[in-house]
């Protein structure tokens, strides 16, 4: 399933931040999203994940295909690692969490409460959630935050394996993951503010 984005504009707080974003994300390929802070990377990713409506343009092939990983991992501190992961697996209609635990080296921690994990371990658990969704398109927002070098390599391997199975990934990151991926620079699509006197329904 190819994710096709055509002439997409996204807004944050009622203000257009990116416009004219177009790209294709084919199965087996990855796209790295770069750009300075505040340019609207998160807004773009949230729009693609279907959490907010686009200002203009089209997104095709995203519905029910996207697994989204945000800044926060959605973990419940009082549930164990295995319980957290099993919950997300069953929400997405999948079963079997062992592959995901293996991929991020979490087997030894499986019965520990998520609240007792370190920041990096929590992040690994959050990322392993992507593996239990069974969704082909991964959309990830700064996935490597608080990961050490070994864990980054673990993550890169997981993405590589996912691409090898015909999945695709759109990752906003500044770290070189060692993936063969195209780079999309969000800075190129910075929205130009509309003319000042043209103040209609949108007040801008």
């Amino acid at each position: 399933m190819t994710l096709t984005v055509t002439d997409l504009s996204v807004a944050r707080g009622g203000l257009p931040v990116l416009e004219g974003v177009s790209f294709n994300l084919r199965p087996g390929s990855a796209l790295i999203l770069r750009g300075p802070n505040g340019i609207g990377k998160t807004t773009l990713l949230r729009t693609l994940a279907g959490l907010q409506p686009p200002l203009a343009g089209r997104v095709e092939g995203a519905e029910e295909q996207v697994a989204y990983a945000a800044h926060s991992d959605g973990l419940k501190p009082t549930l164990t690692v295995a319980e957290n992961l099993t919950f997300w697996a069953s929400v997405f209609g999948q079963n079997g969490i062992d592959a995901a635990l293996d991929a991020f080296d979490l087997q030894a921690l499986r019965d520990r409460a998520a609240g007792a994990l370190s920041a990096g371990q929590k992040r690994r658990l959050g990322l392993s959630r992507m593996l239990v969704t069974g969704r082909p398109v991964w959309i990830m927002d700064e996935p490597t935050v608080s990961l050490d070098t070994a864990a980054v390599a673990m993550f890169a391997n997981a993405v590589r394996a996912h691409l090898g199975q015909g999945g695709s990934a759109l990752i906003a990151t500044h770290i070189d993951l060692g993936l063969e991926a195209e780079v999309l620079d969000a800075g190129l699509f910075k929205a130009k503010p509309p003319a000042l006197d043209d103040f209609d329904g949108g007040f801008l």
């Binding site: 949230r46 994940a49 279907g50 959490l51 029910e64 996207v66 697994a67 989204y68 945000a70 800044h71 926060s72 991992d73 959605g74 973990l75 419940k76 997300w88 929400v91 997405f92 209609g93 959630r129």
Partner: peptide, 16 residues
């Protein structure tokens, strides 16, 4: 609680 830890975002993108 689900809002703060991000679960709500993830639930909104889930098949549910």
């Amino acid at each position: 609680l689900d809002w703060e830890d991000g679960s709500l975002d993830l639930l909104a993108t889930a098949p549910l």
